[in-house]
């Protein structure tokens, strides 16, 4: 996976977020403040512009630029959290021009650690961690079992999607949905849903 791959991943996320913008905002309206779709749309549009204006030289550079742009442009909790995830992942990749599936797994694990450190959420709190953590585990397992890159990315995307759906019966313990107490039960967490979208975009790019 080269720099082009990672830039394409970001472009794929931008398109997917644009298409799902109203869906994400509706999920957020149910248990939050109805801005998740518009915020991520604004953020990833800015990422696409930044990547076009300052083409990165390495995969890590692409992720760090994407993360920094999200922190600068999105606001809310999702800006710093997604921004930190991409920055930490990018920094873990260092200067390497070609990323193996094992290196990608390590990078996403670092991204997850960054999100946990900043947001303080654990699995089961009904946040993006509920999609990201299973995806990181599935990717690591696929690498360990020696599958192809396509199989590994497929497993990660499927785990993220399952994780997002599994937030529906949970009561939120972090973020704005936690204010609702038991009334947050029965709704998919918008952050987990957008994380699943991001990993689905990774699968799409990997399958080309």
């Amino acid at each position: 996976m080269d720099t082009r791959f990672f830039v394409t991943w970001m472009e794929e996320i931008t398109a997917a977020v644009r298409a799902a913008r109203d869906h994400l905002t509706r999920l957020d309206a149910a248990i939050g403040d109805a801005d998740h779709g518009t915020n991520l749309d604004r953020g990833f549009s800015a990422v696409a512009e930044a990547l076009a204006a300052r083409p990165p030289a390495t995969p890590g550079g692409a992720l760090v630029l994407a993360g920094s742009t999200l922190i600068r442009k999105v606001g809310g909790a999702s800006g710093p959290l997604y921004g930190t995830a991409f920055r930490e992942a990018g920094k873990t990749l260092g200067e390497t021009p070609e990323v193996s599936t094992a290196e990608l797994a390590a990078a996403l694990e670092a991204g997850l650690a960054g999100v946990r450190r900043l947001g303080g959420a654990e699995e089961g709190d009904k946040t993006m961690v509920d999609a990201l953590a299973p995806a990181v585990r599935a990717l690591a397992r696929a690498v360990h079992e020696g599958g192809t890159a396509g199989e590994a990315l497929d497993a990660a995307a499927a785990a993220a999607e399952d994780g997002a759906k599994a937030t529906i019966p949970l009561q939120a313990r972090k973020g704005r949905a936690s204010y609702l107490g038991p009334r947050s039960i029965g709704h998919e967490d918008p952050g987990a849903a957008s994380t699943a979208l991001i990993l689905d975009a990774l699968r799409t790019v990997g399958s080309r």
Binding site: T25, A29, A30, D33, Y179
Partner: peptide
């Protein structure tokens, strides 16, 4: 941006314990 109310509330209902972001209350 959303163009529709952030939650549904019937004519005879009130929402207690709201915040300031249009989020439903407790």
């Amino acid at each position: 941006a959303a163009g529709t109310p952030t939650f549904e509330l019937g004519d005879a209902e009130i929402e207690l314990g709201i915040g300031i972001h249009g989020e439903p209350g407790r």
